[in-house]
């Protein structure tokens, strides 16, 4: 039974080893800078090019634009922008194709809600989600 005893010896050694667990909900868990969390959206940067909605593999982004209020300026500005977090897989492709970095990832990841329709986030909510925004994109 030598092998058995050797195994027990290793387990015993762990009594003095450093703890590896985290006190997660009580102490926030820091994520590295590249972490793909809930997106932040800046409406003023958006040029309504529709690329994010087209690249999305789960088609969870829906957006509409409206003509620029200043008649002298060309192009469109964003009117509505919704992400359905029921089906968003946070794959990072929308931020990758965005030419103006209007949509970027943040480090926030806590999405649990009591009701499914709360997971449907609109433009204002995504604009207000402006903490821990990812630097590199």
């Amino acid at each position: 039974m030598l092998g058995f005893a050797k195994g027990l010896g290793y387990t015993f050694k762990q009594l003095t080893a450093k703890k590896v667990t985290h006190f997660y909900p009580d102490v926030p868990y820091p994520m590295p800078p590249r972490f793909r969390g809930i997106q932040h959206f800046s409406p003023e940067k958006c040029i309504v090019c529709n690329q994010c909605a087209r690249i999305c593999p789960t088609e969870c982004i829906q957006l509409t634009g409206k003509p620029h209020p200043d008649p002298e300026k060309k192009g469109k500005i964003i009117d509505t922008y919704d992400i359905n977090f029921e089906i968003c897989i946070l794959c990072d492709l929308c931020t990758e194709v965005c030419p103006t970095n209007a949509i970027v990832m943040t480090n926030n990841f806590e999405l649990a809600t009591y009701s499914r329709d709360e997971l449907f986030k609109n433009l204002n909510w995504l604009d207000d989600n402006n903490t821990n925004v990812r630097e590199e994109n």
């Binding site: 590295p32 590249r34 972490f35 793909r36 946070l90 794959c91 990072d92 990832m105 990812r134």
Partner: peptide, 24 residues
């Protein structure tokens, strides 16, 4: 992996022609 590509399980790290991120 989380430091490299921002996810712990569903990495979506490689792209056709290379990889998405360089090593930090």
């Amino acid at each position: 992996f989380n430091e490299l590509c921002g996810a712990r399980l569903t990495y979506n790290y490689m792209r056709i022609g290379g990889v998405k991120w360089d090593a930090p």
